[in-house]
Write a protein that binds this DNA or RNA. Structure first.
Lengths: 206, 206
DNA sequence: TAGATTGTTAATCGATTAACAATC
DNA sequence: TAGATTGTTAATCGATTAACAATC
């Protein structure tokens, strides 16, 4: 097992998600058609880039008009799997964990948060957006019972590796890491580090 | 004014930030030297990529040994401007705003959060990590007084455009947008949308 | 029609990877 | 020395942009 199949380039997945944001907004404003140049100008990208990405959806637009917004939205949802919900748990019930647990938009994109975990006994049994906080020691049992493979790691950097070890031992396959630390995991487990600081620096650097 | 000068490629900035995470960890474990292959294997990238990025720092390693960890760390800090703190405020004092306000690591990377803003009167005058929450109506005054140019936008999607309008009107130059919405701003203001959902989908897509 | 927009190919651009001489 | 690592050039790869015929 070297790599997940990747028919759609990473960049395209990210852009298509942004197109989906835009189409939602266009529809909310009563616009039923959206053109490649409209999307492109909102994102400051090339319009032929948009058309190429849309081609991945296997739909066709109307010459002189643009794309049917509902049709394009639906195609993106199918292509990117918004309609095949993926379960996840959050490890670290701090503010960031709470924010992700409460993030209503996740559901629209097929991300289904089931529960939170923390090592603070004071937090255990509280609920956030209807999701229970469990003690971290329950992670292996509950993970197995719920068959969940995805963990969001929202603990402080100094605890990240230890938490990752627990997550790995509990049989998870994907760790979405929000801490500014590179964690090591056994072969076969995928880690994605959300590099907030790097993104910020790339953004504001003079 | 079309574009900020960009001597260092975006990708390199992000990778160098990750190298910094790694060097911190290596030093914490008493390792004073770090090689390109060590960094590369932790990040699953090519080792010549690492050497190329390091070359941007204008330091040289030791053949047969690697890079001096302290020297490389310092060079990255200087190159990326960690030592020239940038002030910012947070608009939206929800869980995500709180998480960013409390995120201790920001300081190490030159990100200095001064205050938070919210439209909920109940939150006004509370403090988070020593930072005061002000009513959103105070944004123009305080922004001018503090000379701050960067705003982190952490309100829900449905309020994002409205909040962005206030931020733009208050004279900010950079908006780091965490909501799943593409916001429109006047010419001359930079927006970066942190595409969490896109990143997630790119990560776990089968 | 004239004008606007798609779909797609070709050209350009930039980023990653491979290779290897130089070095200690 | 032998082995490991850097620094750098060349080769490859992939992504973006330009261009334009086809269409309504």
């Amino acid at each position: 097992m070297t790599e997940t199949k990747k028919i759609i380039p990473s960049r395209a997945v990210k852009r298509l998600t942004l197109y989906h944001y835009i189409i939602n907004d266009e529809l909310a404003h009563g616009r039923k058609v959206v053109s490649s140049s409209r999307i492109a100008s909102l994102l400051n990208i090339d319009d032929s880039q948009v058309r190429k990405d849309v081609a991945l959806c296997r739909i066709t637009g109307k010459t002189n008009v643009g794309y049917d917004a509902l049709e394009l939205r639906k195609s993106i949802e199918i292509l990117l799997g918004f309609r095949e919900p993926k379960d996840a748990v959050i490890v670290g019930a701090g503010n960031l964990g709470f924010a992700l647990a409460k993030f209503a938009d996740f559901k629209d994109y097929g991300i289904n948060v089931l529960a939170l975990f923390d090592n603070d006994p004071m937090k255990v049994d509280l609920t956030v957006s209807g999701k229970t906080i469990f003690h971290i020691s329950k992670l292996p049992n509950i993970a197995k019972r719920l068959q969940v493979e995805i963990a969001f790691l929202t603990v402080p950097g100094r605890s990240a590796q230890k938490a990752a070890d627990l997550i790995a031992a509990a049989g998870f396959k994907f760790i979405w890491n929000f801490s500014p630390v590179i964690i090591s995991v056994p072969e076969g487990i995928m880690v994605r580090t959300e590099n907030l600081i790097g993104n910020f620096l790339d953004f504001v650097r003079a």
